[in-house]
């Protein structure tokens, strides 16, 4: 095992100061469920690991002028939050299916997003909830819409001296419902073969789709929004054939670049998108009615 230094700042300023000091020699670690696995597999480590685990001020789920979720919030906290379950349902669906209880107890939302795996469970739900990432570095804070956050597989716009502080979600979710489908072979301890998140905003009588957002994971090098399928749904009266067409558009080359990988063949992934976009749209609509 390659030697490294392990630093444990207790506040954000210290963490950013250390990042600045060590520049490209350092890497951030939060829950460690990705970083430690990578170090173990490659036997290579950065010279310095800067742990964010003691930044307990960044563990929170708040609602005031929008929803604010601290980057160090664990998947378990999201899973056990009734606020997340009822108002940010797709995120609840995702967080409660990450790894196992042991992984969810330590793995963080910020880690899942910054690791930027194409399969990141929380990415799709946060995309359809129109989340914004709040980054802080030596030059201050900046806000980046999550749809502009991922730049490639395991790559993001986060600069090496920046820390992801929180995810912001706009407040006007009153008529929205959301849902996430993680397609797997097993019931637990799985990565998604494909991930599908849908958020719908319905009219007061629940008949018309006023707004729609669809996100796919493992359907491209990064988590993506399926804009053509979203646009198709906007303004439509909700009906089976309408949702079915949205599924067809979402699974087409207009929206995604689905590939065959070791874990799954492309045709099957496309089928699952085609079938589960309508199903998740229906579930999201149900959840608007039940709010």
């Amino acid at each position: 095992m390659q030697d490294f230094e392990y630093l444990m700042p207790t506040n954000l300023d210290q963490a950013i100061g250390l990042l600045k000091k060590y520049e490209n020699k350092a890497a951030l670690i939060a829950g460690g469920t990705d970083v430690m696995v990578k170090i173990g597999k490659t036997r290579k480590a950065p010279d310095v690991l800067i742990s964010l685990r003691r930044l307990s001020a960044l563990r929170y789920i708040k609602k005031n002028g929008g929803y604010h979720i601290g980057a160090l919030t664990t998947h378990r906290m999201l899973e056990q939050s009734t606020l997340v379950q009822s108002e940010l349902s797709a995120l609840h669906d995702a967080a409660s299916q990450v790894g196992s209880v042991q992984i969810r107890n330590v793995g963080t939302l910020g880690g899942n997003i910054c690791n930027a795996a194409p399969s990141a469970d929380t990415a799709g739900p946060l995309l359809v909830l129109d989340a914004t990432a709040v980054l802080e570095g030596p030059l201050g804070r900046r806000r980046v819409p999550l749809k502009e956050f991922f730049t490639g597989t395991y790559r993001t716009v986060r600069k090496p001296d920046e820390v992801l502080v929180e995810m912001e979600i706009p407040e006007d979710l009153g008529r929205y419902g959301s849902a996430y489908w993680k397609h797997t072979r097993r019931k637990a301890m799985e990565l998604p073969l494909i991930g599908i998140a849908v958020a719908l905003k319905l009219s007061q009588d629940n008949s018309q789709i006023l707004d729609s957002r669809i996100a796919l994971t493992v359907a491209a090098p990064t988590p993506i929004r399926a804009y053509p399928a979203e646009d198709f749904l906007k303004g439509k009266v909700i009906a089976d054939d309408v949702l079915k067409e949205a599924g067809r558009i979402a699974s087409s080359a207009d929206c995604c670049t689905i590939r065959t990988s070791l874990r799954c063949e492309a045709w099957y992934r496309e089928e699952i998108v085609r079938v589960f976009v309508p199903r998740m749209a229906k579930l999201a609509a149900e959840r608007v009615k039940n709010r």
């Binding site: 392990y6 430690m36 742990s51 107890n105 330590v106």
Partner: peptide
Amino acid sequence: TVIVDGDAVNSCLYPIPEIE
């Protein structure tokens, strides 16, 4: 699996400095 501060965790992924 062991229990750290009441929570089950995978001790194989738990960096030892964090246990302080």
